[in-house]
Amino acid sequence: MEESDRPRNERGQYKRQVSDEEILDAVRTNEPAGTTEIGEAVGLARQNVDYHLRRLADEGRVSKKKVGPALVWMLAPDAEVNA
């Protein structure tokens, strides 16, 4: 599908191609998971995954931790209960 053929939302932005559940599954499978690793698992660029992960962190569904120079992501402690 060409970029111009992708569906857009009411504000003209491209609709997301990957669900929150797919991203959470990638975190769960690779935990603790790096942003690039999650991107490779779901087929998105690192920058796009970072945006979604930060939104999920704001919602309390994932947590992050700095390990050396890298940022790793884990499911939030109560994420399994809310899934």
Rank of each mutant, 00 (worst) to 15 (best):
M1E: 11
E3K: 05
E3L: 15
S4V: 09
D5C: 11
D5I: 09
D5K: 11
R6L: 12
R6F: 09
R8W: 07
R8Y: 01
N9I: 06
E10Q: 14
R11P: 02
R11A: 15
G12Q: 04
Q13P: 08
Q13C: 13
Q13T: 10
Y14L: 15
K15V: 05
K15R: 15
K15Q: 07
R16C: 03
S19Q: 11
D20G: 03
D20A: 01
E21T: 11
E22P: 03
L24T: 05
L24C: 02
D25R: 10
D25F: 09
A26N: 02
A26Y: 02
A26V: 02
A26T: 00
R28P: 09
R28L: 10
T29A: 12
T29M: 01
T29K: 04
N30L: 14
E31W: 02
A33Y: 04
A33R: 04
G34V: 05
G34M: 03
T36H: 03
E37K: 09
E37P: 03
I38P: 14
G39P: 05
G39S: 05
E40W: 00
E40L: 10
E40I: 01
G43N: 12
L44R: 11
A45H: 07
A45D: 09
A45G: 05
R46N: 15
R46I: 09
R46A: 08
Q47S: 04
N48K: 13
N48S: 15
V49R: 00
V49F: 00
D50V: 13
D50N: 11
Y51T: 11
Y51V: 11
H52I: 12
H52T: 13
H52F: 11
L53P: 00
L53C: 00
L53G: 00
R55T: 04
R55L: 14
L56Q: 01
L56A: 02
A57L: 14
D58T: 12
D58C: 07
E59R: 13
G60F: 08
G60T: 14
G60R: 15
R61A: 14
R61K: 13
S63K: 11
S63I: 08
S63F: 03
S63L: 05
K64D: 04
K64H: 02
K64E: 02
K64F: 02
K65I: 05
K65L: 06
K65E: 12
K66R: 15
K66W: 01
V67H: 04
V67R: 07
V67Q: 09
G68F: 04
A70C: 13
L71I: 15
L71G: 01
V72Y: 04
W73C: 00
M74D: 12
L75Y: 10
L75N: 06
A76F: 05
D78Y: 14
A79T: 09
V81S: 04
A83F: 15
A83M: 09
